[in-house]
Write a protein that binds this DNA or RNA. Structure first.
Lengths: 370, 370
DNA sequence: TTGTAAGCGTTATCAC
DNA sequence: GTGATAACGCTTACAA
């Protein structure tokens, strides 16, 4: 690889000034067609590719946005990676339930996809970074190395400590996706989904179509605003039917598949299952399904189970899971869209967007559908 | 947001030269501790964040690498995105098999995860971009806008046309992940998995543990080197048992779940099912499972079904799918690792790495496992 | 329409 | 150890 050609090389080759070369690239209409051709020829000849750094520096914008995703459990016990070739194929038996699938990531993946998509449509590059669980010390550094290279930042809720967020906010536009804590309500651009309404609609459905009277709630982690909103919707649903929310049991599922599995197993053993188990997310609902299946309890005949999120696994489980689907891809797109608008008008008041959800009825609630 | 402070501001604040400010950041040990403190104080006071563009320009490296992913079907019919708030929750019935799940992306997601992980470990930023199906015209542009901002590129096989690849190769290091065509063998850094050995090991297992004699192959697309290698392994396995490969039927599944579904349905109807259906990827195997289930045929009692890839769905299907798992995350890590090495020594001969696969035995082959 | 030249905010090479 | 100062490769007034 020879030294990369620069505007100077192209200018010399085409026998014009570097300004003209730049114009051909940026504002071709301001260059005489004839000259333009000469320059383009030179560019092709030399295989010239402008330097992004130089361009960004001069233009005072990078045309790049950053996406910061929360940590992923999996990555905690990662080891150094050795680059070794080992052409081989081991055979191993993979027993059922060998390990809890890492389902968390699916959520982010779709948001990421939406960001990619919309960034592309807007002509922006996308930089991605993940946080490392339990390594909060690294996050400021991580996010710094990203911040210096982008025009704005999209952050998945609670992937970045509040103080870091506050610092960033001063230096560049930040859009937060989902469940922002109340304190951030008025300071940041926000993109969220209708958690409360979604859960409310689901509960109403259980009343109206299935005459459910006794339902239990399997909750996520306490510090999650998402969890809070969903529970609000749950309570509101109960009240709308004249039921007292405090009379419905809550179990602490921690958003975890295995914890939910244990909860459901206990309930089954004790014979204290309600008519419906309403879970704060799909992963727990899947854990519940597995537990009930293992306990020989039929869903939905004996118990109805519902989830929240709409992850892909929920569409292929046995039985398939009734859930409230978040428009994950659209979350990503909306975030980019918001950021672009913000970059265009830095001084406007914060933009807050709430995206609609969709209650998806499937067999874990409806029984056989075909 | 006030104007961002620069080295000059910091220098003035700390009453030193800009060179010293730079040194505090880059080579702190070369600065007297006392001075260092003063400068750091000024940096914090002003909330100074160095400019990535300026830094990259001066240092002649961006410390960023790019990842280019193949197009995603889904994105073809994407519409413009309107940023509208619509706080709502519709209820819809989601019938089984309503749409073919977009499973392709799962593969990339894991590779991406590996790239993120290893980039982070290496102190590099990661830029991500996707190709758009049927829009090859856009790819050069896409990849250009990325190339100018990164030190090197990782490309998932066949996401970029060969000629573009050849062009890029001249300007910056390129690492190709998976199934490179033969013509690229000697020119690019390559990271792959043991496709051939994996399929061979799987077939041997079917002979040894299950006494399968008649098996059929459901192939992927013809232009996929992955598909080719896997089929090679299949044939080799047959021969090792004294069987003639040409006597085993091949069906063209196009790597598609729905096509495989149709194939299996036909076979079931005609009563021409072999003892084992060996599929070139998991998606087709899942389609086959569904078809056999719909046809009332029991797996593995009446037919054994196997896949290839190890996508997550394969671990939760009914029955769970025996497959050859590719180390997707490691593919990403290896690619980054390779790229880093290449950046360190541009003139070394191409690096080719083959990662081991793992045959995962599950119920679609073994029957009840517990 | 085209050229000149002044930045853009760093890093790095010198001297001191 | 520290400070001038010249790159780095581009964009963009301002002149011509």
């Amino acid at each position: 690889m020879a030294r990369k050609p620069t505007v100077y090389d192209v200018a010399r080759e085409a026998d014009v000034s570097i300004a003209t070369v730049s114009r051909v690239l940026r504002t071709p209409e301001k260059v005489r067609p004839e000259t333009r051709q000469t320059v383009l020829k030179a560019i092709n000849l030399l295989g010239y590719l402008p330097s992004g750094s130089a361009r960004s520096l001069a233009a005072r914008r990078t045309n790049t946005i950053g996406l910061f995703l929360p940590n992923i459990d999996q990555l905690d016990q990662i080891s150094d990676f050795e680059l070794v070739t080992e052409d081989a194929a081991d055979i191993v038996v993979d027993p059922p339930h060998a390990q809890e699938n890492n389902l968390d990531s699916l959520y982010f993946d779709e948001v990421l996809r939406g960001c990619e998509l919309e960034s592309w449509r807007q002509g922006l590059s996308l930089m991605v970074s993940i946080g490392l669980k339990g390594k909060d010390g690294d996050i400021p550094q991580l996010i710094n190395s990203m911040s210096e290279k982008v025009d704005g930042l999209i952050v998945l809720a609670r992937s970045v400590p509040d103080n870091v967020l506050a610092f960033l906010r001063k230096r560049l536009p930040v859009v937060i996706i989902a469940n922002a804590a109340i304190s951030q309500e008025s300071e940041f651009d926000l993109v969220r989904v209708s958690n409360r309404k979604g859960m409310y609609a689901l509960v109403r459905h259980l009343f109206e179509k299935h005459q459910v009277r006794r339902m239990a709630y399997i909750a996520g982690t306490d510090d999650s605003p998402d969890n809070g909103k969903r529970y609000e919707g749950f309570c509101e649903g109960l009240r709308s039917e004249g039921l007292e929310p405090s009379a419905s049991p809550i179990y602490r599922g921690q958003f975890s598949q295995s914890v939910a599995y244990q909860i459901a197993t206990s309930l089954a053993r004790q014979g204290t299952l309600p008519q419906a188990l309403v879970c704060a997310n799909d992963q727990m609902a899947l854990g519940v399904l597995r537990a009930l299946s293992d306990a020989g309890i039929s869903v939905p005949d004996q118990v109805i189970v519902t989830g929240f999120d709409g992850i892909k696994e929920a569409a292929v489980s046995q039985p398939r899971l009734t859930t409230v689907r978040q428009p994950m891809v659209d979350l990503g797109r909306a975030a980019v869209s918001t950021l672009v608008r913000r970059l265009g008008s830095p001084e406007d008041p914060p933009i807050s967007t709430e995206l609609p959800v969709k209650v998806q009825l499937r067999e874990s609630c409806e029984g056989t559908m075909i």
